[in-house]
Design a protein around this nucleic acid. Structure first.
Length: 420
RNA sequence: GCGGAUAUAGCUCAAUGGCAGAGCGCUUGACUGUGGCUCAAGAUGUUGUGGGUUCGAGCCCCAUUAUCCGCCCCA
């Protein structure tokens, strides 16, 4: 008995049914992006470690990347994210690109972390960005693309929402509370963790960080103020643009959304499943105006978001929104009656394919019963029988497997009969 | 890196320390030119791996590996 070799931990095996879901997501992502005029692009799956060292978070590079030495001795990494590659590619052609740039991509990424629900080591991610525009209307457009996607897969605003905040607004609030600049990162992380912690513990943790009781009270009242956005000119414009774009119903202001990544400079947003069991973001993003300059390009304002395929896949399944799966792409099975008629069945199948139909033929001699059973399991629509009687009369039996009805059709009229 | 569970037929799972089972799936037949539904019969196991306790271990103990779930981080 051969030793069973398992798939590498955290990788994904796409059996046809899972592959169909992956392609379904890809298709909906493409439709949403293209509806707003975004161009598809991609970058290498392998990059040198240096590309990420410049910009990505310490943990992402040092602990969560698949990094190894290639045969030439260079350290390379399976890409854990796309933005550094985007920055490089844009910097290289900055003079010849037409701005604002609207680009999207869907491809594989790898992060070395503990697999759990909604998180694997290998995943597909949709990245979509607009570069070269710095208006709230640009931010609104990206959020509207996200809303368009949610709507297209059947997730209504009752089921999924996009929560929005603005780093600039938060900074002005931190100013008012006199929270010093060096503590703001900790405070942001604190806010990020609030939903996951008991409130007493959270309070204690806040005081531990060095917040005064007054600051803590101020912070809590700020985080409970869902009308705070009205104090932000950017968010006010953002919401009115979302209204105009028909995406307002999907979007809610939430001061608790801060996002962990350092590079966001303005609007930040995250989409969540409102009623499901999974408390992970469907997608998340925001404005990052300094990033391209930071990695050595010309300053370029940018806004974008990313969506992994794992979480959205689980949510679609839980919401019973998976597309119907048809095992076989072929709708027609040509049965093989016996040895003497095998060639005729093959010829028949070729004729039908030449007419643009998708057709399978049994590759071996077996009972018609078995062939029909196969067609049924593969959820095929039609089975053709070419037996001695039909061969003699120049006809073919066409059986509709859904209704169970069957008719004899003349061979010459068959293509016309079968065409949808 | 830390913590909690689980591992038995192809799948989902049962089985007081005492004969390893069910449902689904699979094969065959009822139906020698036709699937689904029904009925009947049948096949399928190194109980993750290695030790230990016991007259006797799927069950108890130790180790190990794998998987799942949570924390951290994040799509």
């Amino acid at each position: 008995m051969a030793k069973k070799i398992q798939a590498v931990k955290g990788t994904r095996e796409f059996y046809p049914q899972q592959m169909a879901l992956r392609n379904y997501i890809y298709e909906k992502v493409r439709a949403a992006a293209q509806a707003f005029g975004y161009q598809e692009w991609d970058a290498p799956f392998i990059e040198t470690i240096d590309l990420y060292a410049a910009k990505s978070g310490e943990e992402l590079v040092k602990q969560q990347s698949f990094t190894f030495q290639d045969r030439g001795g260079d350290f390379v990494t399976l890409r854990p994210e796309l933005t550094p590659s985007l920055a490089r590619m844009i910097a290289a052609k900055q003079g010849e690109l037409t701005f604002p740039l609207r680009w999207w991509s869907f491809g594989p990424f790898w992060r070395y972390e503990q697999p759990q629900k909604g998180r694997s080591r290998e995943f597909f991610q949709w990245n979509i960005d607009m570069l070269g525009a710095d208006t709230p209307e640009a931010d609104a457009e990206l959020i509207a693309v996200g809303a368009t996607f949610l709507r297209s897969v059947g997730l209504s605003p009752e089921r999924a929402l996009i929560y929005v905040n603005d780093r600039r607004l938060m900074d002005s609030q931190f100013d008012a509370l006199q929270i010093p600049a060096e503590k703001r990162l900790d405070v942001s992380n604190l806010i990020d963790r609030r939903a996951k912690m008991e409130s007493a513990k959270w309070d204690a943790y806040a005081l531990e960080l060095g917040l005064s009781q007054t600051q803590l009270d101020g912070l809590k009242s700020m985080l409970g103020d869902f009308d705070l956005w009205q104090k932000s000119p950017e968010l006010t414009r953002l919401f009115s643009a979302l209204e105009a774009l028909g995406a307002r119903e999907y979007v809610k202001f939430d001061p608790n959304i801060v996002r962990g990544l350092l590079y966001y400079t303005g609007t930040v947003f995250e989409a969540f499943d409102v009623s499901g069991s999974l408390k992970r973001a469907i997608f998340g993003g925001g404005r990052y105006d300094n990033l391209l300059a930071d990695v050595g390009g010309q300053p370029l304002p940018a806004v974008g978001f990313a969506m992994g395929d794992v979480v959205i896949g689980i949510i679609l399944q839980e919401a019973n929104l998976l597309p119907d799966f048809t095992p076989s792409p072929a709708q027609i099975l040509v049965t093989v009656f016996d040895e003497s008629l095998r060639t005729q069945s093959l010829v028949l199948s070729a004729e039908l394919r030449a007419a643009g139909l998708r057709v399978m033929v049994s590759p071996e001699l077996s009972k018609l019963q078995k062939q029909f059973k196969f067609a049924d399991k593969m959820k095929m629509k039609i089975a053709l029988v070419l037996g001695p009687d039909e061969a003699e009369k120049g006809t073919v039996v066409v059986k509709n497997l859904e209704s169970g009805e069957q008719v004899q059709v003349a061979r010459e009229a068959l293509v016309e009969f079968l065409k949808p």
